[in-house]
């Protein structure tokens, strides 16, 4: 039995599921971005940045955080959105919404994530870029 499964079964037996509050999720051994970041939507109004982390684990709510800007040396803007981890999923999709970006402009960005108490998940992406329409 691997460690994650063990934790899961201990959780179940210890009744944290009985109370049905969000259970604490087992943490992957090496946390890493397994997909993305990518930009599935570049819109005049809404732009979406998305990436997948194998499993940050821990507290039920995590925040995806995007630092972005038009100057690669100064990512002056920050956007973040909370997500709830799924205790039964082996990976977690983070998604951050950016609104009303200037048109026909190239943006640079990096992504990271943290838990609801602000503790970093310890993964940061390389800088990436996209251009609005």
């Amino acid at each position: 039995m691997n460690k994650a499964l063990l934790t899961l079964s201990i959780m179940i037996l210890s009744g944290s599921l009985l109370a049905q509050e969000s259970p604490i999720t087992p943490r992957a051994e090496r946390i890493q971005i397994s997909e993305g970041p990518e930009v599935p939507l570049v819109g005049g109004y809404l732009t979406v940045i998305r990436w997948t982390v194998n499993n940050p684990g821990g507290l039920p709510v995590h925040y995806g955080v995007v630092h972005y800007g038009t100057d690669p040396k100064n990512l002056s803007q920050t956007a973040k959105n909370p997500i709830r981890l799924n205790p039964y999923h082996s990976s977690t999709v983070f998604r951050v919404n950016l609104y009303n970006l200037a048109p026909k402009t190239t943006f640079y960005y990096t992504v990271k994530s943290m838990d609801s108490r602000g503790k970093s998940d310890g993964v940061t992406s390389l800088m990436k870029t996209f251009t609005t329409q």
């Binding site: 599921l17 009985l18 049905q20 969000s22 709830r84 981890l85």
Partner: peptide, 17 residues
């Protein structure tokens, strides 16, 4: 429990995957 991710919040109390 899967693609919809609903049970992240609407916890169904069961192991699912």
């Amino acid at each position: 429990n899967g693609k919809g991710n609903c049970n992240s919040c609407h916890v169904d109390g069961r192991g699912t995957t």
